[in-house]
Amino acid sequence: MFEARLLQGSLLKKVMEALKELLNEAAWDCSDAGIQLQAMDNSHVSLVSLNLRAEGFDKYRCDRNLSMGMNLGSMSKILKCASNEDIITIKAQDNADTVTFVFESPEQDKVSDYEMKLMNLDQEHLGIPETDYACTIRLPSSEFARICRDLSQFGESMVISCTKEGVRFSATGDIGTGNIKLAQSAKVDKEEEAVVIEMQEPVSLTFACRYLNSFTKATSLSKSVQLSMSPEVPLVVEYKIEDIGHVRYYLAPKIEDEEAA
């Protein structure tokens, strides 16, 4: 038996918004520690890793480890039937081929349940070691979303350069060039407004704006975002979800095309 009750149902709705643009289907791995999801997009350029710890739920029960393959489009349709204030419970029997979503209104005057068919998904699991990145940049998530949106008007690629002068986002295209430079800013009223840069060596990498814009769909989950970069490893874009876990996006950079050169 698996049962997870989340008082703040809107959180699950936001998580779904953060996933559905990149992934069509994914396996939700449930264990007594919590719920984990790890999946690559179809082109194997980006990877999404979601972690929701058991302690973050109002009630959490997982008798046996189970992996629930879900179509995220269908799950999103079901979650749209929930109001933002609703309490959401996810239920499944061991070895079941369906999952049930129960939505309770805060006053308990309306209770709806939706059953969804599960899928058999055969996905490879990638081990992601904790890496000591060359640069780590923490900035307000709304600022990052704005930068991605603004610069994607110039071109399909964005260069993120981190030097001791700060972090520079740039894009070049037919209409011209756009550059946004952020310096470290520590004197702020709220911690999430700060731009914090930890650097061990300068890094400059090019990324597809399309993916970065998809990642910013998670902006509503966290007030700040952390970008971690190193040469020859994927960029990590991490949104911490308060008290419950995180969503991390991994993105392969663009590399020199030896054939075109």
Binding site: S43, S46, S157, D174, A208, P234
Partner: peptide
């Protein structure tokens, strides 16, 4: 012109 992306290709993970 494709700007920065000239001579660049998307790598997979």
């Amino acid at each position: 012109s494709s700007g920065i992306s000239r001579g660049m290709k998307q790598a997979s993970l």
